[in-house]
Design a protein around this nucleic acid. Structure first.
Length: 159
DNA sequence: GCCAACGTTGGC
DNA sequence: GCCAACGTTGGC
């Protein structure tokens, strides 16, 4: 039984971890997600899935690179470490609350696809797209194959 | 189970 | 730095 490749968008503050950082380390465990909906999306990820690497809380928020899911989902080790800022006392190795995947660098976009630009294409992308849905702050969200193609095509067009 | 208080996210 | 929007917590 095969599973069709799925697509996702994952946010990161570049001051914390940027696409350049991912390029340097190549593969990185996506630690620190502490939102149940985002966790559920990560649990649905499989190796080979496509990832838009999004920079948030920065001068020009937008999609800056491509990555791929590089592992099955597994418990986020930082939740068990009392010294981690991501420590969760309600979690235990027997009953982990938080999961993550490893993310592998693929490439940096020739130019970022900005949030402003994504909003301009909101009609084609669908208003339910979490990135531009009013009030949505999800840090991990699904992207449909159609949305993926549409957004990626913007890279080749003038701004 | 309700909901006020609080903390966080993230664009601006 | 501001603040709107949302999620979580905890008292009742």
């Amino acid at each position: 039984m095969t599973r069709r490749k799925q697509y996702w968008l994952m946010k990161s503050e570049p001051s914390d971890f940027s696409i350049d950082d991912l390029k340097r380390v190549v593969t990185e465990p996506w630690t620190g997600v502490r939102n149940f909906q985002a966790r559920n999306y990560m649990r649905a990820m499989r190796p080979g899935d496509g990832v838009f690497f999004y920079h948030s809380s920065t001068e020009v928020p937008g999609i800056h690179g491509l990555a791929e899911v590089a592992s099955e989902p597994y418990p986020d080790p930082t939740q068990f470490s009392a010294r981690s800022k991501y420590y969760d006392e309600k979690s235990s190795p027997e009953h982990p609350r938080w999961y993550l995947v490893d993310v592998r660098y693929e490439r940096t976009l020739k130019r970022p696809i900005t949030l402003e630009e994504v909003k301009r294409h909101g009609d084609e992308l669908g208003s339910e797209f979490a990135l531009i849905r009013r009030g949505s702050r999800l840090s991990v969200m699904p992207v449909t194959a159609a949305q993926w193609q549409h957004l990626l095509a913007l890279e080749k067009t003038p701004t």
